[in-house]
């Protein structure tokens, strides 16, 4: 247990100031998203008598045009976005990496089929893929998850395949083969140490992209079906009231920007000085 704590500390020390700030920001947001349901148990409960109520101590972000608690809806929407994003990126990385290494390693027909498929997919904007999948059965969460994961695995597949093919045909792996070191050695010492930093960077991009995709779909009206709270949908709903009730639109927009800034900050390599 204490060893785990130590290793977390060691990792934190390696981070730059910007990265630590970004991590803190994202943690804060995660706490807000997770703790939300205890404070605001029902994010869809309407109270039309309190519509467009301005922020107060008991309702820190005010209420919307249907008298729903904006803070409660925001916590719920944030949780939804982050959960979908993490689930999609995890799925996409695992699938993309396995397929990529398989294609690079086996070559031949496996590679031809997978590579051909990815060539077709790569001409499709990711948003288009998500839109099409969500068209199959609109508004359901699984289509959103499936669509985003389907759109994202291609990237991991292509990068992992290209990088692995380069490494596998390179002199280091050739030497390992002559030394009769098996596939586990190649995976653990050659491929994984090389792919890990690449995938980590891509994953932070991917989570941002996924959060953005969910909210974009909500914004154009083909995402998560109302009344389930969702960031993009909240912004659309709030826009007509931007003058009377700015808290309604500013709050979800801010959360979206904070997620993206946080993920962006994680990638900055500025030194901690």
């Amino acid at each position: 247990m204490s060893a785990a704590v130590m290793s977390v500390r060691a990792r934190l020390r390696g981070l730059s100031l910007a990265q630590r700030a970004a991590l803190g920001l994202l943690m804060l947001l995660a706490v807000f998203a997770v703790a939300g349901p205890w404070v605001w148990p029902d994010p869809v409960a309407q109270d039309l008598s309190r519509f467009l109520e301005p922020p107060s101590l008991s309702e820190p972000l005010g209420r919307d045009h249907l008298g729903r608690s904006v803070a409660g809806r925001l916590a719920s929407a944030t949780r939804l976005s982050l959960l979908i994003a993490v689930a999609c990126v995890t799925t996409a990385i695992v699938a993309g990496m396995l397929a990529g290494i398989l294609a690079a390693w086996r070559g031949g027909l496996v590679d031809t089929v997978l590579h051909g498929l990815s060539e077709a997919f790569v001409a499709l904007p990711a948003l288009l893929i998500v839109l099409m999948v969500s068209a199959m059965s609109g508004g359901e969460l699984w289509t959103l998850y499936a669509g985003i994961a389907l759109a994202q695995w291609i990237e991991y597949f292509r990068v992992v395949r290209a990088r692995s093919a380069l490494l596998l045909s390179g002199p280091a792996v050739e030497a390992a083969t002559l030394l009769r070191l098996g596939p586990m050695h190649v995976l653990r010492r050659h491929l994984w140490p090389d792919l890990r930093p690449l995938l980590t960077t891509m994953a932070t991009f991917g989570i941002g992209t996924a959060v953005l995709a969910v909210s974009t779909l909500g914004f154009v009206g083909v995402g998560v079906a109302p009344p389930t709270p969702e960031l993009g949908q909240m912004i659309t709903e709030a826009f007509p009231f931007y003058h009377e009730a700015p808290w309604m639109s500013v709050a979800p927009a801010l959360v979206l920007v904070v997620v993206l800034v946080g993920l962006l900050g994680l990638r900055t390599k500025e030194s901690a000085s």
């Binding site: 790569v122 904007p125 839109l131 969500s134 609109g138 914004f219 154009v220």
Partner: peptide, 30 residues
């Protein structure tokens, strides 16, 4: 890719009668 993706979103936002706009409407109406 990024441009075309952006076109889909921006067309919906500005009611620009392009492919993205048509696509989103078509998806909405199945």
């Amino acid at each position: 890719l990024v441009l075309i993706e952006g076109v889909v979103v921006v067309e919906s936002l500005f009611a620009w009668p392009g492919l993205g706009h048509a696509l989103v409407h078509a998806i909405f109406w199945r």
